[in-house]
Design a protein around this nucleic acid. Structure first.
Lengths: 356, 356
DNA sequence: TTGAAAGCGCTAACAT
DNA sequence: ATGTTAGCGCTTTCAA
């Protein structure tokens, strides 16, 4: 591999000092535009590429933001988060260094140490499922932003999905389509997602003047990694077995919705004709592939990734003039409905006007 | 943020020179074990953390391997690839810097430049769908390994899935289960995956003494990003419509298999009782969630990621003694069957012995 | 407007 | 077995 050419090679070729080249290429201070142009031209001619390592050492700024995620392989969420983070990083001149721990605390620790050794300017600490976390103590040494997670003391800026608004979007769509008996199929485990969505669901019903009926809330117990769909199918089938016939159901996620599809098929309940279904997550591979296409609320992973890096970058180089804005923590990011074909207008059976 | 403590702080506290600290912590050459231990103790007491940037500048080795991927968000493949790559990197003392271009050539160029500026020691250039590629010329400057891709001139080490073996695994499972009328639902676009799998399918039939019947090969035309399942459903339904009744079908991927499930339902064909189905990809979220669970061939993304980084690391620090082994390119990585419930033994209707 | 000199934190030669 | 010295490629005073 050919010898890399550096600032001094350019200086030599241009007949100026290294300092001048540095100034020219970084747009520093005042200098003769002629010289600047000449230096720039020669730099490109020679194929000069800056050495960010040397620059980082001198400036005490690596230009790298570390991204710690607890998993990356099993859901597309991580991908979206990283994507949003990368775009924001690129826009601000940072590079992103992504590590992931597969939920192993020891691995996480060593990964974070590696990032710190690499002199990252800030760290984004992301979880894939909204929850409270104990932030590793070492992260107090470096500007850190939390994603899909928050620390009890709200010490760190954090961003999470707006769980209540998710439920409201879904429930209100069903209500607006004429549904009044709306079930909610949720998880057993007590998480911010569960409680937030339940709250939003109840609030929407209330606003529409529909009494909350606890018997319409169905709970399925899923173990991590288990096939959620099968479990949801069983839970919803036994709910139907008991004679309940809601005209709409708001599901905790898309895999649950898929279970509802399967349970409905067993009872000859047609979707959306007899039962309207709304999910959460917008897992394309499920939502777009089942029939009918699933209407679902998308989580703002891309946006959360972007927000986190922008906030982190702001911590590193505070906007000149203003004091560092302290975002109220955690920031609730709003989610959006993706409409497909699983919701139909509910035409209640009304007494038909008698004809003479 | 507290001042970072460096090698010289440790040296001062231990009453030795910086050199000695460096030797002690890096396990260099000969030195008094006593001193080494003392230095190590003091280093941890002080909370010393190495500065890899300074080290990189001095050693002309960043310890970073760049990972360029064309997408990361839409499939779980990227996650597996990155995971395998990260594990291999960690095992070899490298850190991985992942960038992705979203299939934008300009973005890709600038990302690669950023990696080079960061002085990465090597680059892994990964595609998500097996194909021939034009490798960006700049990658000739740095050790580079290709994943799920190969260059026409075989200039770079490369690793791809063994497409023929995928088809053979799937087809042979069907044959071993007693099937002889085996359809193949594939894509229209001419890619190494399509032709390789078709070849493997034919070879397996041949070996079993089953005549290849072109009318059993069904082609579905999918646009990038389109809902593949729907298209596969239509294609397979019209195939069934024409009266064909294979007892097994080998599908190009799991989304196609899901389309087959849906088409079969329309014709009251039960899976696996009347039709056995095998997919490719092992997309957990589909394969484990549809009923019956889909038997499918998993692509070795994790393994390819690992192989690529190991090969790249070998290029950077060749194994002492031996010359750099040049792997025959591209290396075909073998794939493995994940059996669920979509394949049943085919009991051909035989003339029953008449009873008197 | 330009340049000389110093130094970021570490490591590798080369003494001792 | 340990220390001295020099320098990786760049940026930043500071002086000319």
């Amino acid at each position: 591999m050919a010898k890399r050419i550096g600032i001094s090679d350019v200086a030599l070729a241009a007949g100026v000092s290294a300092t001048t080249v540095s100034h020219a290429l970084s747009g520093q201070g005042q200098m003769n535009p002629q010289t600047r142009l000449r230096v720039e031209r020669i730099a490109t001619e020679l194929g000069y590429a800056p050495n960010r390592i040397a620059s980082a050492l001198r400036r005490q700024r690596s230009g790298i933001i570390g991204f710690v995620s607890d998993e990356i392989a099993t859901t597309p969420f991580a991908g979206q988060l990283v994507l949003g983070a990368q775009h924001a990083a690129a826009a601000r001149g940072f590079l992103l260094m992504v590590v992931n721990s597969n939920r192993d605390v020891l691995v996480e620790r060593s990964q974070i140490n590696a990032l710190l050794a690499q002199q990252v300017d800030a760290i984004v600490y992301a979880k894939m499922f909204h929850n409270e976390v104990d932030v590793p103590g070492i992260l107090h040494q470096v500007p850190t932003v939390l994603v899909d997670a928050y620390d009890r003391l709200a010490h760190f800026p954090a961003v999470v999905p707006d769980e209540e608004q998710i439920a409201e979007s879904a429930t209100e769509l069903l209500i607006a389509s004429g549904h009044r008996r709306i079930a909610h199929l949720t998880i057993e485990e007590d998480t911010p997602a569960k409680t937030g969505r339940l709250r939003g669901y109840r609030r929407s019903l209330e606003r529409a003047g529909i009494a909350f009926d606890p018997s319409l809330v169905v709970t399925a117990h899923v173990e991590r990694g288990a096939a959620a769909t099968g479990i949801a199918r069983v839970a919803f089938a036994s709910f139907l077995e008991s004679g309940k016939r809601p005209s709409g159901v708001f599901c905790f996620n898309d895999q649950f919705a898929m279970g509802v599809y399967q349970a409905a098929a067993l009872f000859d309940i047609r979707i959306p004709h007899d039962l309207s279904v709304v999910g959460v997550d917008n897992l394309e591979i499920i939502a777009a592939n089942i029939t009918p296409g699933l209407t679902t609320v998308a989580l703002p992973h891309y946006e959360m990734g972007r927000w986190a890096v922008e906030t982190a970058a702001g911590l590193v180089s505070p906007v000149s003039g203003g004091e560092t804005p302290v975002p109220p923590s955690p920031k609730r990011m709003s989610c959006y409905l993706v409409e497909r074909e699983s919701v139909a207008v509910h035409a209640p059976i009304v007494a038909r006007p008698r004809r003479a």
